[in-house]
Design a protein around this nucleic acid. Structure first.
Lengths: 130, 130
DNA sequence: ATCTTCCTACGACAGTGGTAGTAGAGCCGC
DNA sequence: GCGGCTCTACTACCACTGTCGTAGGAAGAT
């Protein structure tokens, strides 16, 4: 019950992405990555993000030489999934099927994607146990 | 470019839901609905929500007798869709298929839902025009 | 007329997230 | 040994969101 859902802001998520995509990095390295992706923040801003993320328990740091190196403590998958779940809860009271339906109806897909999705659906078993 | 995405908070969304589900209502009515769904907020809190929602342009109000009646100005669908899109953008850079895949893989569905989804997928045409 | 009740208007406050500045420590080059 | 450069620590600030309180008007109950 005390399961306090980890909330990450948009910018914080961006920082996580660079850690996921490029591995453990120093503040400066993260800063450069962010600039590359068009997020032009100040050095100290990145520090703030990383510190907050560490407080939230989603990254860890070790000192290497003079600077700290930060690394993710949670997987991209888990964050992604929990976000999706939060949205499903919010919008559809936890029922994933209607959300899927809406997504499917309102997006366009390539033929490849469609066959991929078909395969996924074919393989579904009802109430498959974990 | 000036396309300012409408942001609704969790509680604000809850208010919208009562308007969508039960139609135009006064502050008091919304309050009661919220209490029914377990959101125990104060009367003035609901007022604040409705006022803010009106400022955001997603609800409108008319005076009826002594009290204002609030009604939604945007459809549930549109809000829902734009939220989903925001998430897809955030997590998958706008590619819906991977998100679908992840959802499908990590949820369990009833047989009914599965056949419904199957039908949806079957009907998909590649790059189907609007 | 007064009391009670309901409604609105307005202000307030704390928490979070995005953003940054300043101060001070450690090290490098000369 | 001194000036820079880089890094951390700490503080700050604003906007937004969730939450509410108080003040005052209007209108029915007595």
């Amino acid at each position: 019950m005390a399961r306090k859902q980890i909330e990450l802001g948009e910018a914080e998520l961006d920082v996580m992405k660079t850690l996921w995509d490029f591995g453990p990095q120093t503040v400066r390295e993260v800063l450069n990555r962010l600039h590359e992706r068009g997020r032009n923040v100040a050095y100290t801003t990145v520090m703030t993000f990383l510190t907050r993320l560490e407080q939230k328990g989603v990254v860890a740091s070790d000192k290497r030489d003079t600077a700290y190196v930060y690394r993710p403590k949670v997987s991209r998958q888990s964050v992604t999934l929990s976000r999706i779940k939060a949205l499903v809860d919010q919008l559809y009271d936890g029922a994933a099927a209607p959300m899927l339906a809406q997504l499917i109806e309102n997006q366009t897909f390539t033929a490849d994607e469609i066959s991929q999705l078909r395969r996924l659906i074919e393989d579904l078993d009802p109430k498959k146990p974990e």
